[in-house]
């Protein structure tokens, strides 16, 4: 009986790390070299969409502190300023928290539109932060393009997350 309980516990724990695991995979996918001219400047932030998905559907499994941790980890992996991606992830949480009632209704188009706004917000805030801390004015075009591509990649990320969600987390 206790053995079954233990296995059950283990199973639940295992399932509950699915959101973290897929977010980590998206962080790593984001830095894989793609030999297209200019790609690395505008590569979509897949992990941002993943954090968004889980912030809406299972915020308990990817809470703000974990988003912060993943953000810093992503920055250390990509060599950008530590904290930059974390700010983006946390902004996602902040917006989702304030609009939870609308977002949790499950309308895909509304989710996508809201994500477009969030991606733009994250891009602008990151741009301003980097410019302010480095005391330079950077070209803004790649930043906006990246936000557009991140928005375009949302259905793909959301579909992957949805599959995981159904496969591992619905039975609980």
């Amino acid at each position: 009986m206790t053995g079954g309980g233990f296995l059950h516990q283990l199973d639940r724990q295992g399932r509950s790390i699915a959101p973290s695991a897929i977010t980590l995979v998206f962080i790593l996918l984001g830095v894989v070299p793609v030999p297209l001219p200019g790609w690395e400047a505008i590569a979509p932030q897949l992990a941002l969409a993943s954090v968004y998905y889980w912030a809406i559907h299972r915020p308990d499994l990817l809470p703000p502190w974990l988003a912060f941790l993943f953000g810093v980890l992503g920055d250390l992996t990509s060599g950008s300023m530590p904290g930059l991606t974390a700010v983006g992830f946390l902004l996602v949480h902040a917006v989702v928290l304030s609009q939870r009632r609308i977002l949790s209704r499950g309308n895909v188009l509304i989710m996508w539109a809201a994500f477009a706004a969030i991606a733009l917000l994250v891009a602008l805030v990151s741009y301003l932060l980097v410019c302010a801390i480095n005391l330079v004015v950077l070209p803004i075009r790649p930043v906006l393009l990246q936000a557009v591509l991140t928005t375009a990649a949302f259905p793909f990320v959301a579909a992957v997350c949805l599959q995981l969600h159904r496969a591992f987390l619905v039975l609980e």
């Binding site: 984001g30 830095v31 894989v32 070299p33 793609v34 790609w39 690395e40 400047a41 505008i42 590569a43 979509p44 932030q45 992996t77 990509s78 060599g79 950008s80 300023m81 930059l84 990151s126 741009y127 980097v130 950077l138 070209p139 790649p142 930043v143 990246q146």
Partner: peptide, 13 residues
């Protein structure tokens, strides 16, 4: 092995 995306940094791993 890695070429970080993003408009803010140009590094390779």
């Amino acid at each position: 092995v890695a070429e970080p995306g993003g408009a803010f940094v140009r590094t390779v791993l």
